[in-house]
């Protein structure tokens, strides 16, 4: 059950990118799952976290889940060089903060939780094709920010020398 809580927290954190809000979300979802007698399973908890996150965004009138009705980038080539050099994890943290919640969400679900595109589609309600495109675009955007930050770090190092 501890592992389930850890996973729930990471998922909440991927949506909020904020430790306090992630704890709040996890707590709300956990209480609601227990109250309704729901089964303590990953899918159930994730779904509760997601719906509470959307509620909180609506309450705060934040538009964070923009429409995903963009055309699927079917013609885009998958970048072969998926390997990157990372000076530190803070760079990744900063880059992730520039992504939209849905982009961080699909990256966590696919890369950490091992969800298939179909499973992500079932959780988020977006078509499978859109999910595939979103994963690809999110990775590309993340790499792009990381490259920019990497250059900044290199320039700063050169300036010090």
């Amino acid at each position: 059950m501890r592992e389930l809580l850890r996973r729930g927290y990471r998922y909440a954190f991927s949506l909020t990118h904020d430790k306090t809000r992630a704890e709040d979300l996890l707590q709300d979802a956990w209480v609601s799952t227990l109250k309704t007698g729901g089964v303590l399973r990953r899918a159930y908890l994730f779904s509760a976290i997601r719906s509470r996150f959307l509620d909180s965004c609506r309450r705060a009138q934040l538009v964070v889940f923009e429409s995903l009705d963009e055309k699927v980038d079917a013609g885009q080539q998958h970048t072969p060089a998926d390997e990157i050099v990372l000076a530190n994890l803070q760079m990744l943290e900063r880059s992730l903060s520039t992504l939209r919640p849905i982009e961080r969400e699909v990256l966590l679900l696919s890369d950490l939780e091992g969800y298939t595109a179909q499973e992500i589609s079932e959780l988020t309600g977006h078509p499978r094709g859109t999910v595939l495109s979103l994963i690809h675009r999110s990775r590309r955007r993340l790499k792009h920010y990381l490259c920019i930050l990497g250059e900044e770090v290199q320039n700063a190092e050169r300036a010090v020398e």
């Binding site: 430790k19 992630a22 390997e83 990157i84 990744l92 950490l112």
Partner: peptide
């Protein structure tokens, strides 16, 4: 790989 960095980053996040 980017996914390995991501995994490491998120695994560090704990309640």
């Amino acid at each position: 790989r980017l996914s390995e960095h991501l995994r490491r980053y998120y695994e560090e996040q704990q309640p």
